[in-house]
Computed example of a mutant assay.
Amino acid sequence: MDYGFIALIVIAVLFVLSGIVTVQQGYISVITMFGKYRRIMRPGLNIKIPFLEKVYSRVSIQNRSVELEFQAVTIDQANVYFKSMLLYSVMNEEEETVKRVAFKFMSERELMQALVRTIEGNIRSYVATRRQAEVLGLRREIVEYVKVEIDQTLETWGYHLLDLQINDITFDQAIIESMSRVVASHNMKAAAENEGQALLITKTRAAEAEGNAIKIAAEAERQAAQLRGQGVALFRQEVAKGMSEAAEELKQANLDTNVILFSMWTEAVKNFAEYGKGNVIFLDGSPDGMQNTMQRIMGMMQMGNNSHEKR
């Protein structure tokens, strides 16, 4: 057996195996030869020249994220603390892009430091032109500003900013307490204004209702008084008409008309007794008293007849 031939075969197999390179999915390997860029290897099984070509770096083409925490100062000297999340990736899988990503920075650490500091600087410069009260409502504007400012810089590095999320914006404790007091005072003012408007509406409606009730009651009283007057007038007309007819009948019968007065007197006494309901009524029931009452009634009738004749 020729051991030299076997050794040669083993060396040849090892040489071939040393040239086989496997690149994982989501990565692209950068190959150099004698320290100079030569080519890239894409995911899968690849062959390189053993001992001459070397894998310089592996570039991830997957999306990557990093969390940022930093401080900025507004134009009115208020400290603002940001917590944000940065999502970025390699622009594309083209060879020139991969070369920029592989050779622009010495390591991943330097890339992250430059990326974070660039974004922080852009946000700080934007916040420095705004007031404290404006910052909370400017999340979207800050993100859009940073994207516009940083995209061109990242492109020269071979990266693209996919998303920037500002998750939290806080202030110093003293500022938070003062803002809370301002919000509370605004809420109290709004509540007082609403209560005042509600009370005004209630008072107005109550006054309108009371006025309408007074108008309705006055109108009802007016109509009632009118009806009472009409009823009294009609009653008097009917009484006068009845007395006239009764007097005429008595004259035709050759009877004294004083009988009518006597009848009215007795009817009055009867009504007093029937509707008095226990009240004490003093009447002069003597013949002289009745005669005086009759004379007064006759005098009043005579005065009415004289006034009617004058008309």
Rank of each mutant, 00 (worst) to 15 (best):
I201L: 15
A218S: 12
E144F: 15
T153D: 01
E95D: 00
P43W: 09
A224N: 02
N258Y: 11
E149Y: 06
L250P: 06
L17C: 13
G26V: 10
L250D: 01
L111Y: 15
T32S: 11
L115T: 02
F70K: 00
F105M: 06
L111G: 01
L14Y: 08
D76Q: 04
L45V: 03
I214K: 10
E221C: 07
T97M: 01
Y145L: 01
E274S: 10
E94A: 00
A246L: 11
A217C: 03
N258K: 04
A72S: 12
S89R: 05
A246P: 04
V127T: 07
V73C: 05
R139K: 15
S107I: 07
T257I: 15
G289E: 10
G137H: 12
H186C: 04
L154V: 03
Q223K: 14
K147F: 02
Q24F: 12
A184L: 13
I20T: 04
L8M: 09
R296W: 09
V127I: 10
Q71L: 10
V16C: 00
L227S: 06
L154D: 03
F103A: 02
T22L: 13
V73N: 05
Q302P: 04
S65E: 00
H186Q: 02
Q24T: 02
L164D: 07
Q223A: 12
K251M: 05
E309A: 08
Y3S: 00
N305D: 14
K215G: 02
S65W: 13
E248K: 14
K54R: 13
Y56Q: 08
Q62S: 09
V127R: 12
P50M: 08
G35W: 14
H308K: 13
K147T: 01
I31N: 03
M1D: 00
Q173D: 03
I216Y: 10
E69L: 01
E95M: 04
Q77A: 09
Y81A: 02
V101W: 10
L52T: 12
D151L: 08
R236S: 03
A253F: 07
V55I: 14
T257Q: 05
S178A: 00
V98I: 15
E309M: 06
A207Q: 07
Y27P: 02
V239S: 09
V183A: 14
A133F: 10
E96Q: 15
Q291R: 02
S107H: 13
A7Y: 02
F51R: 14
V146H: 04
E94F: 00
Q173G: 03
G4M: 06
A217D: 04
K270Q: 06
G242E: 13
V30P: 04
E108W: 13
A213T: 05
T153G: 05
A268L: 11
K215M: 03
V135A: 04
T32Q: 12
A7L: 12
E245G: 01
F235P: 01
N79L: 07
A102T: 07
H308I: 10
A114C: 09
K241H: 14
A240E: 06
Y81D: 04
Q223H: 11
G35A: 12
R39A: 08
E177R: 08
Q226M: 10
E219I: 03
V66M: 04
S107M: 10
E53H: 11
A184C: 09
E69Y: 09
S125N: 07
D288W: 14
R42K: 09
E95H: 00
